[in-house]
């Protein structure tokens, strides 16, 4: 296990400091050129784009996931496991298939364009697929369950009497949310956001199928460098930048989880 996991990772790390041979392959010359190459605007753009898509995805997941988690946590106790199961079920189905479902909906001749045209809202089909929007929709779709679960745990532990008390004291709707609900569910919110952010930033399938050439993310860049350009050292350097981002997020997660007596769980 350790052999098949840590050794390969170490190998990627080592190669990220090596140079590329003339015909691909790896030449073992120590260099930091691969990391310096990443400063090139083209790579910077893909990196920035990935961070941006992952951030919007996280925000949208929160906006959709919080009400859902709240409603589930406040529904009758015997219904709660069923609702949670319904939220998690799509997550356990094939990711390719779920992404493909969005291709059917978003493409030129897709259901969304057909409905819009039938309703007379647009005259000609909209370009929905192969756009950044499609990538973000796909990511939100894929990772929404990760947001709902920790939020549910947080809301479930929030004492409803505290919320009622705020209402009784004539707090506005906004004040109840920002001054009572939000601070008390903060660990769950941070946990959920990180659990959505991590897979989003490292995604490959979603931008590959739903995005176009200009909405590439880090995962696609790694695959491109490895399998298309065959520049393994550069691909390895890119993957370690990704790894660093993910590890930072993981550490943040553990810090918040341990502060809230560690009841948040990843799966």
């Amino acid at each position: 296990m350790g052999l098949f996991f840590l050794v390969p990772l170490g190998l990627v790390f080592a190669i990220s400091f090596a140079s590329r041979g003339t015909y691909g392959g790896v030449v073992w010359e120590l260099t930091s050129a691969n990391y310096l190459d990443l400063l090139h605007p083209l790579y910077g753009k893909i990196l920035g784009q990935s961070l941006w898509y992952a951030t919007i995805t996280t925000v949208i997941c929160f906006a959709l996931g919080f009400p859902l988690a709240y409603v589930i946590a406040r529904s009758p106790a015997r219904w709660q496991p069923i609702f949670l199961l319904l939220v998690m079920l799509p997550f356990w189905t094939n990711f390719l298939v779920r992404t493909y479902a969005w291709m059917i909906l978003l493409r030129h001749d897709g259901l969304i364009n057909r409905s819009l045209m039938a309703l007379g809202i647009v005259d000609s089909p909209l370009d929905l697929l192969y756009r950044p929007t499609a990538v973000v929709i796909g990511l939100v779709y894929g990772y929404l369950p990760f947001m709902v679960l920790p939020l549910y745990v947080a809301v479930e532990r929030l004492d409803p009497l505290l919320v009622d008390a705020a209402w009784d004291l004539y707090a506005s709707r906004w004040a109840v949310f920002t001054r009572v609900v939000l601070p008390l569910t903060k660990p769950g919110i941070i946990g959920g956001c990180i659990l959505v952010f991590i897979p989003s930033i490292g995604s490959f399938i979603t931008p590959d199928l739903l995005g176009g050439a200009r909405s590439m993310m880090i995962g696609n860049l790694i695959q491109h460098e490895y399998l298309v350009v065959r520049d393994w050292p550069l691909g390895s350097a890119v993957s370690f930048v990704l790894m660093a981002i993910v590890m930072a997020a993981v550490l943040l997660y553990y810090k918040t989880a341990s502060r809230s007596d560690g009841r948040l769980e990843a799966r």
Binding site: P67, L86, A101, L105, F177
Partner: peptide
């Protein structure tokens, strides 16, 4: 809870539709 519940339920319903809509369409 009572006062904000309608809006919350509407968003929750939308979120569930969002989760299952594409799957149903595909099938």
């Amino acid at each position: 809870m009572k006062r904000e519940s309608i809006g919350l339920k509407a968003v929750s319903l939308a979120a569930m539709l969002f989760l299952y809509g594409p799957i149903v369409v595909l099938v």
